[in-house]
């Protein structure tokens, strides 16, 4: 029995060590977004990333503290070491301490959490507005200041490869499931307001690099905003279950410098004019 217990405790300590190292090594994200939240390309996404890391570290430290005490006890206070059980069954002082300290930690967390949220919900002073409408299973974008609008669907290559037993290898498809036929083109360095709604069921518009998602609800118009700092292509997906092709309505945002954006706008207007 004694030997068996030793084996068990060794395994338990090993498991705790593995879990802790895993958490510590992986938690900082090491700059890749494969295991951690992206820092993104907006002030909001950077705020949300910082907030996430603060809370993650607080939680990790609390967890490691609790587990250290627990596994110390498991090693020391065992019958096989002839440890005599203590008789105590409560301590008002200890219980007050571990009620008050968590409250203080929570207050400490609530401060940055409140600041970030207040910033996120302030969409005033936007310089342009894009209306986003979710459909089963595509997105429609309307540039309210420019008279441009188009529908954005999963690109044909991904669509062919995603059929059941298509025989195509997803890894060989460019940006499999994260590519669209008509990406949303936006200028960098401008505060852009989004009006988000849906036509049939609830969808949710999410590009991780922008730092938030917001539901698209039929009959209601939600507001959100962004200000992209860096030109580039940013990909996201619908985040609210919306039926059979919920997994197949991606979002692609191409952020361009203002001059290139202006060129794109005039091209679009010319194209739409030609189509009329």
């Amino acid at each position: 029995m004694k030997k068996e217990n030793t084996v068990i405790v060794a395994l338990a300590v090993l498991a705790a060590l593995v879990a802790t190292t895993w958490l510590i090594l992986v938690a900082p994200g090491l700059g890749s977004n494969e295991v951690n939240m992206t820092r993104g390309v907006t002030q909001q996404s950077a705020d949300h990333f910082e907030l996430h890391m603060i809370v993650l570290w607080i939680c990790a430290i609390i967890g490691i503290g609790v587990f250290t005490v627990m596994f110390t006890s498991i090693v020391l206070h065992r019958k096989s070491r002839n440890h005599t059980p203590a008789k105590f069954s409560h301590s008002t002082k200890a219980e007050i301490i571990w009620t008050v300290i968590p409250v203080l930690i929570l207050v400490g967390m609530a401060v940055p959490a409140t600041t970030a949220l207040v910033k996120m919900e302030d969409s005033s002073g936007a310089e342009m507005t894009v209306k986003i409408t979710g459909f089963q299973w595509r997105w429609k974008y309307e540039y309210l200041d420019e008279d441009i609008s188009f529908i954005s669907s999963l690109d044909p290559n991904s669509n062919a490869a995603r059929q059941l037993n298509s025989g195509m290898v997803p890894a060989n498809v460019d940006n499999y499931l994260l590519n669209v036929d008509h990406p949303l083109v936006l200028p960098v360095g401008k505060k852009i307001k989004f009006l988000i709604t849906a036509d049939d069921v609830i969808h949710s518009w999410w590009v991780p690099a922008l730092g938030w998602k917001r539901d698209a609800i039929p009959g209601f118009v939600n507001e959100a905003w962004t200000n992209i700092e860096k030109p580039g292509t940013y990909r996201g997906q619908c985040a609210e279950l919306c039926g059979k092709d919920h997994g197949f309505m991606p979002i692609v945002v191409i952020a361009l410098p203002q001059d290139e954006y202006d060129t794109w706008v005039s091209e679009q207007l010319a194209e739409q004019g030609a189509a009329l």
Binding site: I8, V66, M70, S73, R78, A86, T99, P102
Partner: peptide
């Protein structure tokens, strides 16, 4: 706030084990 009473429970469980004579 929910984490406060939940924390109390976890801390109390660990304290129950503390200085006990455990078998596994």
């Amino acid at each position: 706030l929910i984490s406060v009473p939940t924390g109390v429970k976890v801390f109390n469980w660990v304290s129950t084990m503390w200085q006990g004579s455990m078998t596994f």
